[in-house]
Design a binder for these strands. Structure first.
Lengths: 339, 339
DNA sequence: CCGTGCCGGGAAAGCGCTTACCTAAGGAGG
DNA sequence: CCTCCTTAGGTAAGCGCTTTCCCGGCACGG
């Protein structure tokens, strides 16, 4: 691997001069030298060692992103937004998948700190584990304390700026739509219990139920893993526990799609016999049949806003919290019961 | 930011000793000192500067991945496989999106080289631009020359090991199925002309046509961008140019889904009036209606194999080329014409 | 013709860490 | 009891780069 010293030697100049030419430093340099150095760079295929540069001039350039799983469309969309903004700012993005393991999240914060990233963006639901939460929060604060910036998406109990989707309100809108359509026997496919996203969305649904003088008995709530297959299994459980269900609300689109698949395999008409509703409005929601009625969250935009917060807004003073509204998208998968 | 010197000072030892304790070096150290140092680490929330470590001990630990776009399900799946293997090897992954711009790919190779990554994995189709290809190849060779490892997915004209999906054969299988079902007026939605993936898949389709004594006139081939919306537009063009089409073969699933959406919006029955076939077997292929008949490529496995090649196989000697078979998956979207 | 100022370029320090090498102290062997 | 080896720990060099500081040479003004 060619080093700066190699280049300098070859061009017959000092490393200092070579460095100045390569980095376009303000210090003026004779044209002849410039050309010699540039030629040497080309001949040796020299690329500066980014680590050495970072060490010498502690100007952090990369940003870290911790998500549950990039290949999950929910995070893929968020990541797209994050990447776009990061690229606009000339930042390199290091993506870490926690695969929903809190401990791995902790490790990654440490690792990103070691990498001297300029900012850390944490995307994805928080956990109902106060020891863990405190631990994470502590690590983030330490990181912020040393000049790092942090933004979180979908959590609010942490250090740093936050972009929080209206999960509770989304759940409420879902419930409202269901009651408006006339459903009374509603099953819910919830996400993992440990996630605050699950709790928040469920709370919204419960609020809507209460306002209509009803409740959500626990036999009508099945917990799944936020993925398609466990969503299908949960739908089966729900149907077994409560054969008269006229609607199933899933707390994300993947599980709704799983429910759709199960219903189709059993020959149950959607929305004729059972309506199915999702949450998130992932791109595929409009392509399944029937197209999914769901709650839209502007995922890519949430990512973009979080990255913007992390990169541009001051770290001093109160952390900013940006609320992101949820919106009901009516498509074909929900209709009045028995119709 | 606390440094090793801070820790050493606080523990009353030399930086050397502190380093040895923190990194668990083989050199024996008294228990009392060990505890003091560890305590200092905890108190100062010390995290070693990864760049300084890398500089001092040139042991490359990160690996770079260049894809067209992670949020595209095709790459999301591949990336999942890549990540899994990388994590098993304790490697950090830096993901770069080229957004299908060759120049950006070039830049990223440079950037990853600067980051001293242990390996670079390039995923996604190659381009029909020999100047660019030579350029890229050259950069990769230079990188390999300095001890870097490279693996490419879906290209073969390059330095480094390769995992190549049977694109031509997949196209052939698609064609065979179409002719077997009895289709004769077949429209094709191709991907970007500049991509070798497009050419290869199309070539397979053409071979099947030839074997059945037919050709693929250019008015029956529409070029799109490998995404859903341009796929829908291409389907519309195809229908306009050739109203009697009984089948549309799309060269990836996203475009097939776009075609499905267009057909549905026009009230055209699939597969009753027009059959639709896809390529890749992305996860959503089974969830659209009708479920997509498509060519399966084991995407995640391709990613895993590429990362394995990059991380474990020798860089000396001939680069390895691993062929990945394509497989026809029959679902509901293709049927005999007119029935 | 000399002093002053400016400007292009080099020497060297230092970023935070690892590690080869060295040293002082203690124990074993003669 | 002295020498020599072992061992725990420290000293310092150096990884590849940037940047401050300095120096020599030139042009200019007096």
């Amino acid at each position: 691997m060619a080093t700066l010293a190699d280049v300098a030697r070859r061009a017959g100049v000092s490393p200092a001069t070579a460095s100045r030419i390569i980095n376009g430093s303000p210090k003026p340099v004779t044209e002849a030298l410039r050309e010699r150095v540039l030629a040497a760079v080309a001949e040796l295929q020299y690329v500066p060692n980014a680590h050495a540069q970072l060490l010498a001039r502690p100007q952090r350039t990369a940003v870290g992103v911790i998500v549950h799983d990039v290949s999950d469309p929910y995070f893929a969309e968020i990541t797209r937004g994050l990447q776009r903004v990061a690229t606009e700012h000339g930042r390199l993005v290091i993506i870490c998948n926690s695969y929903r393991e809190p401990d791995r999240e902790l490790e990654y914060v440490e690792l990103l700190r070691a990498q001297q990233v300029a900012a850390i963006v944490l995307a994805g639901s928080g956990y109902h584990d106060s020891a863990f939460t405190r631990n994470l929060d502590n690590k983030l604060r330490v990181y912020e304390h040393t000049g790092g910036r942090v933004a979180v998406i979908g959590r609010h109990e942490h250090a740093g700026h936050a972009v929080v989707p209206a999960n509770e309100m989304g759940g409420y809108l879902l419930g409202e739509e269901l009651y408006r359509l006339g459903h009374r026997r509603i099953g819910v496919i919830a996400g993992p219990r440990a996630l605050t996203t699950t709790t928040d969305r469920l709370a919204g649904l419960r609020r809507a139920a209460r306002e209509h003088g009803r409740a959500l008995p626990s036999r009508r709530v099945a917990y799944a893993e936020f993925d398609r297959d466990s969503g299908a299994a949960a739908a089966a459980d729900l149907l077994a526990a409560e054969p008269g269900l006229t609607a199933i609300a899933a707390l994300n689109d993947s599980m709704a799609i799983g429910a759709l698949a199960l219903l189709r395999s059993r020959g149950v008409a959607v929305p004729g016999e059972v309506s199915v509703l999702g949450f998130d409005d992932m791109p595929v929601a409009r392509d399944v049949t029937p197209a999914l009625t769901t709650i839209r969250l502007p995922l890519a935009e949430m990512g973009a806003r979080a990255m913007t917060l992390a990169l541009t807004s001051s770290t001093a003073g109160e952390p900013l919290v940006e609320q992101v509204p949820a919106e009901l998208i009516r498509r074909a998968s929900a209709a009045p019961p028995g119709g």
